[in-house]
Design a protein around this nucleic acid. Structure first.
Length: 287
DNA sequence: AAGACGTGGGC
DNA sequence: TGCCCAAGTCT
């Protein structure tokens, strides 16, 4: 905690508020996404849609456009859906109860715990890739959370959680994991836990390479889907054929598959009254 | 319960 | 250059 007070990222925009909606927006943006990239998006977002009700009122298409560059576009859609649900069911107030939060689309164990703790200032372990790695290494001597096992890491996180000041505790663990106890090149020489670290004691074991990555990313459906949504961000609508034309290499032959998948996810829809014209989704009719 | 799901930066 | 990684969730 002494290290955190002196070195923590206390000025992050989403740490200066306890507004559950603001914290939720930041947490969703931060899913699998680094702090530096999120910052400007978060500030712009809060200016444009300062509360759940205003976000609920927005066109899904505009929400998806505002998300450009953040990746994992379904997060944008789920955040919008969550705002609609919160507006309809909870009078526009984002809940801070973990179980209630988990009923919202796109909110899993991590995000529910984060909003509960960071906005609600309630005592609960917040386990993510950072805090998980710190605990797995420092307490269990494992390479990471994966190696240590989810179960054991969760148990250790619960045992370590102080009875008071859980918010700062979790934020401290998070900053330590992001700034010092990093995945690739941990700076153990300036780590406040270096003297009692089980991982250091065990000889700093490294996890086995995840492998995979057999095909180039550019060959994956994920890449093609990203191109399609991105193209639609700049236009009102496009024909299937136009979309096929802008896809590189063998992707053109799979347009229908990609479009079908994106439609099922709700990231695109057919232009009303047409069969091969596509656009980003408009407001759902009748709710 | 593996695999899908975007994008950009670091080394 | 190419691979790894980043405040996860859903199916």
């Amino acid at each position: 905690m002494r290290w955190y007070r002196a070195n923590g990222r206390h000025d992050l925009p989403w740490r200066l508020t306890r507004d559950p909606y603001a914290v939720l927006v930041s947490e969703v943006m931060l899913q699998q996404t680094q702090v530096d990239r999120v910052k400007p998006y978060f500030v712009d977002w809060m200016e444009r849609w300062p509360d759940a009700a205003s976000l609920a009122d927005a066109e899904p298409a505009e929400v998806i456009r505002a998300w450009a560059g953040l990746g994992y576009n379904r997060r944008a859609l789920n955040l919008h859906r969550a705002a609609v649900k919160v507006t309809d069911r909870f009078e526009g107030r984002v809940p801070t109860d973990e179980d209630t939060l988990k009923t919202l689309p796109g909110i899993g164990p991590y995000t529910a715990a984060a909003v509960h703790c960071f906005a609600g200032e309630r005592r609960t372990p917040v386990l993510d890739t950072n805090t998980g790695r710190v605990i797995a290494r420092a307490r269990l001597g494992a390479a990471d959370m994966r190696t240590a096992g989810d179960r054991r890491t969760r148990e250790a996180a619960s045992e370590l959680l102080p009875s008071r000041g859980a918010r700062d505790w979790n934020l401290a663990l998070m900053d330590l994991g992001a700034m010092v106890c990093t995945a690739r090149k941990p700076a153990c020489d300036r780590c406040p836990l270096r003297n009692g670290c089980a991982w250091l004691l065990a000889g700093s074991p490294v996890a086995e390479g995840a492998g995979a990555a057999a095909v180039r990313f550019e060959e994956t459906a994920r890449f093609a889907r990203g191109r399609i949504v991105d193209a639609l961000r700049e236009r009102d609508a496009m024909e299937t054929l136009e979309i096929a034309d802008l896809l590189p290499g063998a992707h053109a032959a799979n347009v229908d598959t990609y479009l079908g998948g994106l439609e099922r996810d709700g990231l695109i829809e057919r232009l009303p009254g047409t069969e091969r014209s596509w656009r980003l989704p408009g407001k759902a009719t009748g709710r």
